[in-house]
Design a protein around this nucleic acid. Structure first.
Length: 955
RNA sequence: GCCCGGAUGGUGGAAUGCAGACACGGCGAGCUUAAAACUCGCUGGCCCUCCAGGGUCGUGCCGGUUCGAAUCCGGCUCCGGGCACCA
């Protein structure tokens, strides 16, 4: 068989396999640590460092399609450019391997999730290996590895064993809090002395402080998945993010993370991060900070009415519009509000309108009926009639503290128990929802903010509420307070001050963010390192007992339970292994019987901190060595909070992974385990690769590869099909795998094509025909260097001509800047342009050939390495200096000259840098705009000044 | 409803002072018995043309700023994304 030197699929495959093996053997992509087991004597640890990361993949059984590696290729190109510009670059990829699909597969087949997951990881590694990604494989971690999740559990214990000290503004060890209680420096919540409390009472008090705590509260129960879910995992229409199953509220005892303690810091620190504005905005909205006030309304005892016990009650409301308190004409409690039953009188007050009673004989009956009606609504239904206002009168009245007015109290489901205090003051004139409710129930409205449009001040004549943050307050004066004439923000301040003086309220801040529900009733996750003693008190396992490995069970299936029955809890898979659950342990006070926690952690846990483990993956004593962590991630110029230099991934994790990881980072920072207060300094969201979906007349997708185009229409065989743009995937029968592209053209072509398709951050369709364009580029480049019959080189040992030199240095300059800015598509266009230039010349000077090879090396590393080798070099392009443009050739051939008339710029001229003054003068005077501007005025003087300014003084 | 982002040839997209780089597709030619995963040329519309070139319109729509606008400003239209009874 004769050897061929034509760059085709076979040769590309040969080159790629050869160099991949070489790089692996040489450890080419290993990044040294400054110390520890991954340190070396290459001296590279002394270089400026860069830590580049991808969002690591879930090892799905479906394998990769070409959309998955888009980000991995981008970070690889960027990392290679950094290596070639003298950086010590840490780039690797692990696997986020706990999660539902493997468990669902186990339910169906009985295969242990570990077995299927590890097989999937193996397949995915093989797929990724073909792409020639320059990863430091020593640092690749997998979240299901006990050596890894040992530290996930360890971090959980750090969080469990700490509390948020509001005064210090940071987390501290729980032992400090105990010491404060013991010394009396801090009073116990219920006013008793710490020493008098039983162990269970102490545990309960501390549970109110711990950053990880168990609580009994309404949670999102998803029967379809057999587990509870975090708020972030439930979509706006009340379904599970994964699987799209309905979600119901149910009261269950679950573990939570006190992420709300960090709301302000999570919000404020966004400012220092180099993240897309859209993601920052999503996080800001999710945290949902609103400044306002708590206002106490008194509901006086109804004389002799047994229902409210004959005592006064105080109901606190939260509002951001305390300035409109004088406009509050009624009050609303959420149906679940705990004071509803206490305030309801036995009978309707005299003169209650029939429309307010819902047709019921007494208030208690009316409220019971209303509760039943709203509770039966699932979140989906509640969403459907979101705008329709329903409610019922409680029969009670509250006193508006500003003017002493008696206002009716309603129950309505447009007020949510989970936000603020679960009660509102209703100002129908200045709130759209209150306006709608007041209209429906014929409640009075009072205008207290002067409308800035022509609607007048009688709300009865309005079509909607008047909402403005920039208007004047009117008709708002009461005992000790006058707001009239103030603007909204001044009125808010004055009202807050008054509320605080009178002791009927205070300025407060509310957040939309809720604590993170952290336990799942599933098997395939990290077990909690928690045991309960006979009194039900939770104890942390000592570090020496970590990792707490997942026990074996023989039935992985989730169970549903009866949410109606308050005494039941969902059965957890881990509880099925009795020997594992019931244990005798010595936690320091002798062997005792304990029961293990049988929930598992959500699959976000492993991804909350994996960047840290990449740094020091073999360390068995610590999560990460502090010196190594500071080296790669510590605060530095322009990054006061530290973090990874570049993190690339999809935008779908905006309020999930990206929020959780920031939270864990801050806890670890507070407790002194890391120097970086933020995990990811710079974030980049890559777009999606879309693909055409072809559907037959019944709407079913047909395989995209079997569709033919004829006269602008598409046919599957003889059947016409429709075409639309959609996600790439198995179910839509349009997936293209990297393997098939590699087989047809090679990995370098795939890499180039993915990078050349368009800007990295926008979604764009995969065009199967267009891939060949990048293949042709590589073929032309190959032929410019290699003699296809002998395998020798065709480059000539002569200096490039002037035009070529200029083209070359322009390309070097542009490509370098494009790569630094992640503009890979334009970088490729510039390389192509230069390559086309020399192709047309027919002869390629060695200097140009070598430049081309180095320029393309980050994008197409295999062919670059091969060509570099064939050009007679024995070193690797990987650590070669990237070409540097000679500024002499990059300067523009023309400069801009400004023409002014009466000191005003009238025109700009592109002229040669060395143009003579007299010539410049005549060009300026010949310019049509200049001639027009001068008109008949004539010219008195033309002054040409350095650098190039033509000043024309009209006569 | 509110908040973001976008609109440039047949297609993906370049371009912050020469609109359409680079690529696909298309057309024409070459090589070839034949082919293309080969090579070369042309390829926004309209018009003129002595075939060398030239003119003119043109970046979703309307208006503005500017010597000059795809780019900046104001107002629309359409598309994509996020949030949504959060007081």
């Amino acid at each position: 068989m004769t050897e061929t030197f034509k760059y085709g699929a076979a040769l590309a495959a040969d080159i790629e396999a050869r160099w991949q093996e070489h790089w692996e053997r040489e450890g080419t992509y290993e990044a040294p640590n400054p110390s520890g087991s991954l340190a070396d004597d290459s001296g590279r640890a002394k270089l400026p460092k860069k830590f580049i990361m991808d969002m690591f993949p879930y090892p799905s059984g479906a394998g990769l399609h070409v959309g998955h590696p888009l980000g991995y290729i981008a970070t690889d190109v960027y990392a290679r450019r950094l290596r070639m510009t003298g950086h010590n670059v840490l780039h690797t990829l692990g696997f986020d391997a706990f999660g539902l699909p493997a468990e669902q597969y186990a339910v169906q087949t009985g295969t242990h999730p570990r077995v299927s997951t590890e097989e999937n990881i193996g397949n995915m590694r093989a797929q990724l290996r073909r792409l020639g990604l320059g990863h430091d494989v020593r640092r690749s971690v997998s979240t299901i590895d006990p050596a890894y999740y040992r530290w996930t559990q360890w971090i959980f214990l750090q969080i469990f064993n700490s509390w948020y000290d509001e005064r210090a503004g940071r987390a501290r060890p729980i032992a400090d809090l105990v010491a404060e209680f013991e010394s009396g420096a801090r009073a116990c919540p219920d006013g008793r002395d710490w020493s008098e409390l039983t162990a269970a009472e102490r545990a309960s008090v501390l549970g109110g402080y711990r950053l990880a705590y168990a609580s009994d509260a309404p949670v999102n129960w998803c029967p379809g998945l057999g587990t509870v879910l975090a708020n972030e995992e439930v979509t706006a229409d009340g379904r599970s993010e994964r699987g799209n199953f309905p979600v119901f509220k149910s009261r269950l005892r679950q573990w939570n993370m006190r992420i709300t303690a960090y709301a302000d810091r999570l919000l404020d620190d966004l400012e220092a991060l180099d993240w897309p504005e859209a993601i920052k905005l999503q996080q800001r909205n999710w945290i949902g900070r609103s400044e306002g006030a708590r206002i106490d309304f008194t509901i006086p005892a109804v004389g002799g009415a047994p229902a409210n016990g004959g005592t006064d009650h105080t109901v606190a409301v939260f509002t951001t519009r305390q300035d409109t308190l004088f406009g509050a004409t009624y009050m609303v409690l959420a149906p679940e509000h705990h004071l509803v039953d206490a305030i309801v009188p036995a009978t309707w007050p005299e003169g209650t309108r029939p429309a307010w009673t819902g047709g019921h004989a007494d208030p208690r009956e009316a409220i019971a009926a209303y509760r039943e009606r709203t509770a039966a609504k699932s979140d989906v239904e509640r969403q459907a009639d979101a705008r329709e206002k329903t409610g019922v009168f409680t029969g009670a009245f509250a006193i508006n503290p500003a003017n002493g007015e008696r206002v009716p109290v309603f129950v309505a489901d447009y007020v949510l128990m989970g936000y603020g205090t679960g009660a509102i003051m209703a100002v129908p004139a200045h709130d759209v929802r209150d306006f709608a409710f007041a209209r429906a129930f014929d409640l009075p409205m009072r205008c207290v903010v002067r409308p800035t449009d022509d609607r007048g001040t009688d709300p009865a004549e309005w079509d909607d509420a008047f909402v403005s943050h920039d208007a004047e307050i009117i008709d708002s004066s009461g005992p000790g307070i006058v707001l009239d004439g103030l603007d909204v923000s001044a009125a808010k301040k004055r009202m807050t001050t008054w509320l605080e003086q009178e002791g009927v309220g205070e300025g407060t801040i509310n957040y939309r963010l809720r604590d993170w529900l952290f336990s799942r009733q599933r098997y395939w996750g990290e077990p909690f390192p928690i045991v309960y003693d006979e009194d039900g008190i939770a104890h942390a396992l000592p570090e020496s007992m970590l990792p707490l490995e997942l026990p074996e069970i023989d039935d992985y299936s989730p169970r549903t339970f009866d949410p109606e029955d308050a005494d039941t809890q969902p059965e957890t898979p881990l509880s099925r292994n009795r020997e594992w659950v019931e244990v005798e342990l010595d936690l320091g006070d002798g062997p005792r019987r304990y029961r293990r926690e049988t929930n598992t952690m959500p699959n976000w846990a492993g991804s909350c901190w994996y960047e840290l483990r990449y740094l020091d993956p073999l360390n068995t004593d610590r999560l990460v060595d502090p010196g190594i962590e500071r080296y790669w991630m510590g605060p530095r110029d322009g990054m006061p909070l530290g973090g990874v230099d570049l993190y690339v991934g999809g935008a779908e994790h905006a309020v999930l992974h990206l929020l959780y990881a920031r939270f864990w980072s801050k806890v670890l920072y507070d407790l002194g385990h890391v120097s970086s207060a933020e995990p990811f300094h710079r974030l980049f969201n890559q777009g999606m690769i879309q693909a055409h979906v072809y559907r037959d007349s019944r709407g079913f997708p047909v395989p995209a590869t079997e569709v033919e185009e004829r006269d602008g229409r598409w046919y599957h065989g003889d059947e016409p099909v429709t075409r639309e743009l959609g996600k790439m995937g198995k179910s839509l029968k349009n997936a293209v795998t990297p393997d098939e592209i590699c087989a047809e053209y090679g990995a370098d072509t795939l890499r180039l094509y993915e990078m050349a398709m368009g800007p990295l951050d926008v979604s764009r369709p995969w065009d199967p025909r267009a891939v060949v364009g990048q293949f042709r580029l590589l073929q032309r480049l190959w032929r410019n260097v290699v003699d296809e019959t002998t395998g020798g080189t065709v480059v000539v040992d002569e200096a490039p001509d002037e035009a070529t030199l200029r083209a070359m240095h322009k390309a070097i300059d542009g490509v370098g800047r494009d790569l630094d800015a992640l503009r890979f598509n334009t970088a490729i266009a510039k390389i192509t342009e230069l390559n086309n230039h020399v192709t047309k010349q027919g002869r390629v000077p060695r200097e140009v050939a070598e430049t081309l090879v180095l320029l393309i090396a980050p994008l197409a590393p295999h062919i670059a390495e091969e060509l570099w080798h064939r050009l007679g070099h024995t070193d690797s392009v990987v650590h070669r200096p990237y070409p540097h443009a000679d500024p002499a050739y990059v300067v523009d051939e023309t400069i801009t000259c400004v023409v002014q008339i009466r000191g005003k710029v009238k025109a700009r001229l592109e002229v040669a840098p060395d143009i003579a003054e007299t010539e410049l003068e005549s060009i300026a005077l010949a310019h049509p705009t200049v001639r027009g501007a001068l008109g008949d005025a004539g010219i008195r003087k033309v002054i040409v000044r350095a650098p190039k300014l033509v000043n024309i003084v009209p006569a």
